[in-house]
Design a binder for these strands. Structure first.
Length: 747
DNA sequence: GTTAGAAACAATCCT
DNA sequence: TGTTTCTAAC
């Protein structure tokens, strides 16, 4: 495709982004301005100009983005596209380390530790160092270490910088010990994958030259979210020609807590003085009103590159806003509205997304979605691969793959129960430490550990089992290996004997996991156990989203970055939740600006329709909390908002409720407390206009609640439109509730 | 050594 | 409210 042809499908700025191939380029790409389009065509253009595909590297933020880019490049280029290096920061580093980790004292079959693994290691570290985890929590130490690693401060440098501060002493020794353990386990945590790669490139000119020569053209997506160590990595990979093209939007920088350094993008022109700067400000995604809302919110931020997005799209519907009495009603409304939109043929399920600030909010939404029989998929929360049963199976695989991985071995030594308890465990661990060997190596010579006594007879069969699998490993595919493990250990049998819903769900998860192994096997030319484990370790929640299935997506605002939907709901628009309580109390206005950017990201996900909802009260950790409408909502001009009165969806709501929701695992209890659908709807449409009704009870009266049972009224407070009643229930204790929907009966 | 039930505790967002 | 850790009894 020549430049004239390209001009037919790209605007002037986009074209410039595609064809400015030499030297450093900064593309400031506003939301929905077609940056993926620019990146993919840029890759295609480079190849057409005669650049070899293997000389091109594109770093993305998620595996999903990488996959999409690869697919789109494939469609334009025809052949050779698979040779382009398209990967995330983490998987790029793994690829480099798998090849050269031996140069920094690791074995190339290293394990990758996730957050759970890191925490287990840190627990051990605190135990050995006698650090009181009541005073300093493991999580706190880990986050200090992680922040240091983001800034490229290794354990020695950290010690040097903090030696004068006695309060830092435990952190210094913990950091040292933690790193020592990772090394002896032959493992990297997430941060080390990048930090160690940077160290490798820095101190090994041979490796550095190898990659600098390989990657003649580098592109980085979502550049505003890179941190210091990632910047350094990019800098080290970029050869003297400096053919580096970064794409990002400072207004969408939302990962400061993860070390993202916004100055990487704000100061790009200082880092690379010869840089060409290109601005993409035309939005192709959203309606005029949605964009106006976004612009009006984000312009309240001070530290940003001034720009205003514009669009030629149509005006569109007003932004809808609605406040409810409780999070339950909020969730109910969203579920029903989605159903009604579907019924009217406006949107299909997969065109709708519900976005929220915290994962905890997903629970109520999920409940209502089940009730209403709406297909949904929750992104985030408990990662599939961090479920207990999956981690158990993974630990077996890791033990077979990397015997030095103490963590994996220790996890499964007594799973399922083999009668090897804490005492034997401790004896083996002591022996391993004294002899300077790995835990598994100590198990192999259990006969030598005299203190074990009879316990040896429990250990030898385990070691024999693992050794047998190691030997026969090459005869199996990964899926077969997993089946073999499950058969021999009786893991699944045990679960099915248990027979509870939970156990059955675990079996299903294991089946799904085996499926993943099969898919991996099919999709890779040279599948290896290490390769599979690595893929599993680096998979993000968002990567598991399947675009072809029809379901509503529920996820955090962070998770939504880079995605778009026709119909978006932003739930929980309350001060204290979004922006979060911590942001409000903290007087650092940087934090508030980051929250605002997050809001901007949320708004700009919507193409056609945007609905914001809030609840006056919601249950947080067992307590009712009350909140007012988010300040961000108030930053949107009234003229483009449809306020608190909610329009009835024409005549279809009766029909809507005729389709009785199929009962799933939503408990019958819930069903019992559920008023009729019509009443539900009336209540929802009434929303914030609930009229005060005269109460039939007073303070001291006995009342009955449909779910909580009987109790005594302790207080009645005038809450404006409604009464807030405090009741001391016999069974469940004190609860606060609004009279109009608590439906309390005097007895 | 195992297990169940009580007590303690929890504060975003993520690779 | 939901999960993790501690304790006591089998």
């Amino acid at each position: 495709m020549n430049v004239t042809d390209l001009h037919k499908i790209l605007n002037d700025e986009q074209l410039l982004g595609v064809t400015t191939t030499e030297g450093p380029v900064l593309i400031l790409a506003g939301a929905g301005s077609g940056k993926t389009r620019v990146l993919t065509h840029r890759v295609a253009y480079l190849i057409e100009q005669g650049v070899e595909p293997w000389n091109i590297m594109a770093i993305t933020f998620t595996n999903k983005a990488a996959g999409e880019m690869r697919e789109r490049v494939n469609n334009i280029v025809g052949h050779g596209a698979e040779q382009v290096w398209v990967a995330t920061f983490h998987s790029s580093c793994v690829r480099i380390l798998r090849r050269f980790a031996d140069r920094i004292g690791f074995d190339t079959n290293f394990s990758i530790y996730d957050a759970d693994d890191s925490k287990s290691v840190m627990k051990e570290v605190c135990k050995t160092l006698n650090i009181d985890t009541k005073k300093i929590k493991e999580k706190r130490i880990l986050s200090v270490i992680s922040a240091a690693k983001d800034e490229m401060i290794n354990e020695e440098e950290f010690a040097r910088q903090n030696e004068s501060d006695f309060r830092m002493a435990p952190y210094i020794s913990a950091y040292r010990e933690y790193q020592a353990r990772l090394r002896s386990n032959n493992a990297f945590d997430f941060d080390d994958l990048i930090l160690k790669t940077v160290e490798l490139l820095k101190y090994d000119p041979e490796v550095r030259n190898f990659y600098q020569e390989k990657f003649k053209y580098i592109m980085v997506d979502e550049y505003q979210d890179t941190n210091t160590v990632q910047f350094e990595l990019v800098r080290l990979l970029t050869g003297p020609a400096q053919n580096l093209c970064v794409v990002g939007d400072d207004d969408q920088s939302i990962y400061k807590f993860r070390g993202a350094n916004i100055y990487n993008i704000l100061n790009f022109e200082q880092h690379f003085p010869s840089a060409t700067v290109i601005r993409l400000e035309q939005n192709y995604r959203s309606t005029k009103r949605i964009l106006e809302a976004a612009n009006n919110v984000i312009r309240n931020n001070e530290g940003r590159k001034e720009k205003t997005l514009w669009t030629e799209n149509e005006e569109g519907e007003k932004i809808r806003f609605k406040q409810f009495d409780s999070a339950y009603e909020e969730a109910e409304f969203i579920a029903m509205d989605i159903k009604s939109q579907l019924r009217r043929g406006n949107f299909k399920y997969d065109e709708c997304a519900v976005l929220y600030r915290t994962n905890a909010q997903s629970r109520i939404l999920e409940e209502k979605f089940i009730n209403e029989n709406i297909p949904y998929r929750i992104v985030g929360g408990v990662n599939f691969y961090s479920r207990k049963e999956i981690k158990d199976v993974l630990a077996y695989l890791k033990t077979i793959d990397n015997g030095d991985d103490d963590l994996a071995v220790q996890r499964i030594i007594n799973v399922p129960k083999r009668g090897i308890g804490a005492t034997s465990f401790g004896k083996v661990a002591d022996y391993a430490r004294a002899e300077g060997m790995s835990f598994y190596a100590a198990l192999m010579e259990a006969e030598e550990i005299t203190s074990l006594g009879k316990a040896v007879t429990k250990i030898t069969p385990f070691v024999e089992f693992i050794e047998d699998l190691k030997k026969r490993q090459k005869d199996f595919t990964i899926a077969e290996l997993i089946r073999e493990i499950l058969d021999q250990t009786g893991y699944v049998d045990e679960l099915s004997a248990e027979g509870t819903d939970e156990a059955l769900a675990r079996i299903e998860n294991i089946e799904e996991f085996i499926n993943k192994a099969l898919i991996y096997q099919q999709e890779n030319e040279a599948p290896t156990l290490s390769g599979f484990l690595e893929e599993v370790a680096l998979i993000a929640d968002i990567d598991r989203l399947d675009d072809d299935e029809e379901y509503v997506v529920l996820m955090t605002l962070h998770g939504a970055k880079g995605l778009e939907f026709e119909n978006v709901y932003m739930a929980g628009m309350e001060d204290g939740l979004f922006p979060s309580y911590m942001t409000i109390t903290d007087d650092d206005d940087q934090e508030m600006e980051e929250e605002r950017r997050l809001c901007y990201v949320g708004i700009t996900r919507a193409k056609q329709c945007l609905t914001m909802t809030a609840a006056k009260s919601r249950m947080v950790r067992g307590e009712w909390q009350y909140a007012s409408i988010s300040r961000f909502v108030k930053e949107i001009p009234k003229e483009i908002m449809e306020g608190s009165v909610w329009e009835k969806p024409k005549n279809d709501f009766i029909e809507l409720f005729d389709a009785a929701p199929k009962k799933s695992f939503a408990e019958k209890k819930k069903e019992a407390t559920k008023p009729t659908a019509a009443a539900d709807y009336a209540r929802l449409t009434r929303g914030s206009e609930i009229k005060k009704t005269d109460l039939e009870f007073g303070i001291g009266d006995r009342v009955a609640h449909i779910k909580f049972g009987e109790g005594t009224v302790e207080n009645i407070a005038d809450g404006g439109r409604d009464y807030e009643v405090t009741v001391n229930f016999d069974r469940v204790g004190v609860k606060k509730m609004f009279a109009s929907f608590a439906k309390l009966k005097k007895i």
